[in-house]
Amino acid sequence: MPDSPALEITGLVKRYGDRAVVDGLDLVARAGQVTAVLGPNGAGKTTTVECCEGLRTPDEGSVRVLGLDPATSARDLRPRVGVMLQDGGLPTGVRALDMLAHVARMYASPRDLGELTERLGLGSFGRTTVRRLSGGQRQRLALAAAVVGRPEIVFLDEPSAGMDPQSRRAVWDLVRELRDEGVAVLLTTHLMDEAEDLADHVVVVDHGRVVAQGSVGALLAAADDRTLQLQASPGLDTAALARALGDGLTVDEHVAGTYAVTGTVTPRTLAALTGWLAEHDELATRITVGRRTLEDVFLDLTGRDLR
């Protein structure tokens, strides 16, 4: 079955009380691909993932993991599915490597522990009790536990949260390698660069629904392609600047002294901008013209309000 997806979620609904935190969500993840789920806090990412892991029971809709229903085929799925929970779930009273060895014992042919320890740099704290590990160290251990059983699909809920840049790189390398081995990887993240670098497929979730999805390239292309950023002294008259730029462009000062110009940015826009600055005797410290980032697209899709 080369074409049947590793994960297929259709019309998933999960309610707490009468509030639907997942509200008709559809999602497909394929073997040999990294699928990144993005969404603001409380969007329903963890709830969705936990429905796939058999930890929560959906109220409506269907979930198929490797073609099976996690609610009824848990026994068959457990050896084939790797799980990294957002809130950890590691036993706290044991040493880090003892804990990993214990999880490995549940599988018929686990990965080589030495190699995994090396790759994720677990050796330096292997004899420390889990309770005493730092946040990033715990994350690395939890990731190791998720992949130690050679799963066909892994669910990683914010795998690189709290990790230093070195660890994050090690995690990304491991994720890419899993993908190349044909594993389906579903991860949630708030790191836009993580999604941009890693994901073959990005799914943006808000209020329990998918609001956009596609490859990073497709998501960026769908939006206005170019952006212009200006750094100068704070408090410039943005309305006046926008009028000077014309072409229906808008100017926002989200952070004091940093201005974003949105709309269709052309070479003429740049000339108009520098002209306006000269007129007002204002020396810009930095002007950047570039592609919009995934973060820009994300903020457009999900708004700027705090959840």
Partner: peptide, 18 residues
């Protein structure tokens, strides 16, 4: 009860241990 609060029961129940 502490294993339950810390998510240990949930994590271990996703391994083949069940």
């Amino acid at each position: 009860s502490f294993d339950r609060r810390n998510g240990v029961l949930r994590l271990l129940s996703t391994t083949p241990l069940g």
